[in-house]
C-alpha cells in the first residue's frame, strides 16, 4: 500500500499523461469547483474524481483522502453554517440564524474542498517527483532550484511523518501513552517536535550538501535527457477540463441557488 504522497506505479491514462498537463488539469478541476456552488455539479466532479482514482487503482486512497479533507474542512463548514443565514429558519442566533440554506452552504464547502483536493493529490501519487520537477523546468522554464525545492518539500513529508512515528514509538517504549483525547495527545506531542526539528534540520542540511557536491547549481533547463512532449491524450484532457470550467460557469449563471 502506498504511503502518504508516495508514487504509485501504474499504466493508467493519468500515469501516461504529461506531468505539466496533469497539474494543469488538476488546477482546472479545482477552478471549476470554485466557479459554482451547485451541489449537483460538485457531486458530479466528485464522481469524476473517484472514477479517475479507480482507473489508477487508488480508489481506497482517494476515499481515505476524501475523509481526511472532509474532517479538516469541518471548521470552514462550521463558519459557513454560522455565518450564512439563508433559507427557512431552523435556529435563531444572536447575529442571525441557521437556515436550510446555511446547511447547504456548509455541505457545499466540504464537497468543494474534497472535490478539488482529490485531483491535486492524485497528481502526486501518479507522478514521479523527478518527472514533475524536470517537466516544469523543460516546458514551463521554471528554475530548477524552485522545482527542486517544491519536490524536496513534498518528498520530505512522508520522511518526516515516518520520523515522527519513530519518535512517538521511542517515547511509547519509555512509557508515554499517546492514547486518550486530542488535547492530551497534542500536549504529549509538543515536546517531540524538538527531536523532529533536529532531525529535519540535519536531513535538510545533508541533502543540501549532497546536492551541492553533485553540481546542483550547474543544472539548467536543458540538463535532463528525458523529454516531456504533449500527446493527444494531454490535449484531450486539457480541453475536457477547460469545458468543465465552462460548464461550471454556465451552471453558476443559469441555475439559481436552491436557497
Amino acid at each position: 500500500m502506498a504511503k502518504f504522497l508516495e508514487y504509485v506505479p501504474g499504466d493508467s491514462f493519468l500515469h501516461r499523461m504529461n506531468p505539466v498537463a496533469k497539474v494543469l488539469c488538476a488546477l482546472l478541476i479545482s477552478i471549476a469547483c470554485f466557479c459554482t456552488g451547485n451541489l449537483i455539479f460538485l457531486v458530479a466532479v466528485l464522481i469524476l474524481d473517484f472514477v479517475m482514482a479507480a482507473r489508477c487503482g487508488m480508489a481506497r486512497q482517494a476515499a481515505g483522502l476524501a475523509k481526511a479533507v472532509a474532517i479538516f474542512s469541518i471548521l470552514l463548514a462550521l463558519i459557513a453554517l454560522l455565518g450564512t443565514p439563508r433559507g427557512p429558519v431552523l435556529v435563531t442566533l444572536p447575529w442571525g440564524y441557521i437556515g436550510i440554506g446555511s446547511i447547504v452552504a456548509a455541505i457545499t464547502v466540504i464537497m468543494r474542498l474534497v472535490a478539488c483536493a482529490i485531483p491535486l493529490f492524485l497528481v502526486m501519487y501518479v507522478t514521479q517527483m523527478n518527472d514533475l520537477a524536470n517537466s516544469f523546468c523543460k516546458i514551463v522554464h521554471v528554475l530548477y532550484k524552485y522545482a527542486f525545492t517544491f519536490t524536496s518539500a513534498v518528498h520530505f513529508i512522508p520522511v518526516f511523518m515516518n520520523d515522527m512515528s519513530g519518535i512517538m514509538e521511542a517515547q511509547t517504549a519509555r512509557g508515554v501513552a499517546f492514547d486518550g483525547g486530542m488535547v492530551k495527545r497534542i500536549r504529549l506531542m509538543v515536546p517531540l517536535c524538538v527531536p523532529l526539528l533536529i532531525s529535519s534540520v540535519r536531513k535538510t542540511n545533508s541533502a543540501a550538501i549532497a546536492a551541492e557536491v553533485r553540481g546542483f547549481n550547474l543544472r539548467t533547463c536543458q540538463s535532463g535527457y528525458k523529454d516531456y512532449p504533449f500527446t493527444g491524450l494531454d490535449v484531450r484532457a486539457i480541453v475536457a477540463c477547460v469545458l468543465l470550467v465552462a460548464v461550471a460557469i454556465v451552471v453558476n449563471v443559469l441555475v439559481p441557488p436552491l436557497f
Partner: peptide, 24 residues
C-alpha cells in the same frame, strides 16, 4: 498490558538515539 506496564518491564534502546532523546 498497558504502555506504562510494558515500559516498566521492558526497556527498549532504539538504533537511532535521536529518536529517543527529546529533552533539553
Amino acid at each position: 498490558l498497558r504502555t506504562s506496564q510494558l515500559a516498566a518491564r521492558v526497556g527498549f534502546l532504539f538504533q537511532n538515539p535521536d529518536r529517543q532523546i527529546c529533552c533539553n
